[in-house]
């Protein structure tokens, strides 16, 4: 299937992501920030879809925009927002921040201008329909062992979080 108006949708979704990303860090009300973050994540999911990665897009919406953001909102509602709103939102390290941002920006421009040969130029050929199946094959056959070990990693994280965070158990 030939996509329609690719360029338009790319810039549209990018603009949505960037604008809501800026909103995340500039809103004073944390609930607004969280809602803006959801919009940013949805915009990203749209970009993934444009790259023929429906699985990643679905995971992005279900896990990040759905699950994790709901958790964020719960936490925000549990903490004391009134006090948090009165506090100064930016710390005093903005000079360091600007210098770091400038350095990164210069690096980015340099790599863009001079680094043509730095990365391989070949464009990946993406199969259109079998994306999700391909991921399943990789995850449950070729990389099954790593996948299982990752579950141990989660077990350690759960035990550690309970032991560290609970006041008395």
């Amino acid at each position: 299937m030939q996509p329609v108006a690719t360029t338009f949708f790319f810039y549209f979704l990018s603009a949505v992501t960037v604008i809501s990303g800026i909103a995340v860090i500039t809103r004073r009300n944390p609930v607004h920030s969280a809602l803006a973050l959801i919009v940013a994540l949805l915009g990203q999911a749209g970009l993934y879809l444009m790259l023929y990665a429906p699985f990643v897009a679905g995971v992005q919406i279900i896990l990040y925009a759905g699950g994790i953001m709901v958790l964020f909102l719960f936490v925000i509602m549990l903490v004391n927002i009134e006090r948090a709103q009165k506090e100064e939102q930016f710390n005093k390290q903005w000079i360091v921040g600007i210098v770091a941002a400038l350095a990164l920006g210069v690096l980015f421009v340099l790599v863009y201008m001079k680094g043509k040969g730095l990365f391989p130029q070949t464009v990946a050929q993406l199969p259109e329909g079998e994306n999700t199946q391909g991921i399943a094959m990789l995850l449950y056959r070729d990389y099954m062992f790593a996948f299982e070990i990752a579950s141990l990693l989660l077990l350690v994280a759960i035990i550690g979080a309970v032991v560290m965070a609970k006041k008395r158990i």
Binding site: Y143, F145, A146, I149, A150, L152, L153, V156, A157, I159, G160, V163, M164
Partner: peptide
């Protein structure tokens, strides 16, 4: 390298918890 990284993380995460275990 992928497996090595997961092993490193499994080890590291356990050791962080072990280091902070005495509350």
């Amino acid at each position: 390298l992928l497996m090595i990284f997961i092993g490193l993380e499994l080890l590291g995460l356990s050791l962080y918890v072990m280091a902070a275990f005495d509350k």
